[in-house]
Amino acid sequence: MTNQHHSTQPKTKVAHSGIWSYVIGFVLAVTLTLLAYVIVVNHLATGFTLLATLLGLAAVQLLVQLVFFLHLGRDKNSRWNVASFYFMLLVLVIFVGGSLWIMSNLNYNMMMSPEEMNKFMLDQSMRGF
């Protein structure tokens, strides 16, 4: 009985809020994209500040699209979707973060920056290696 109650009510609610969810998501996504673009094209920031700002804007836009377009976590039955999403994030952090850490460590232990390594490889290939 209660089950029936639950399944009929949210359906109409989704239909009503649906179009606004997409419109809000779209406006926010366009704004965030343009903001990041303007910052880069007009050189409004440099170095670490720029990197942090751009990655921050990308992360916010990720959240916007997950919530307003993909509707992650809206349905009460989507617990497993949310769980697998968090698990994917964990895997990404471990292996993307880990790869970058290992590679920068490697460069450090070779006593060379990637640019110097690049130059070294180029010199070697000029010599016919």
Binding site: N81, F85, M88, V91, L92, V96, P114, N118, S125
Partner: peptide, 27 residues
Amino acid sequence: WIYLMTDCVLFGALFATYIVLHTSTFG
């Protein structure tokens, strides 16, 4: 959805590769 999550991992690998290699322009 789980397929999409595994696809995220695939793209993660490609992003990691790109970030490591993006200065290796070979002159």
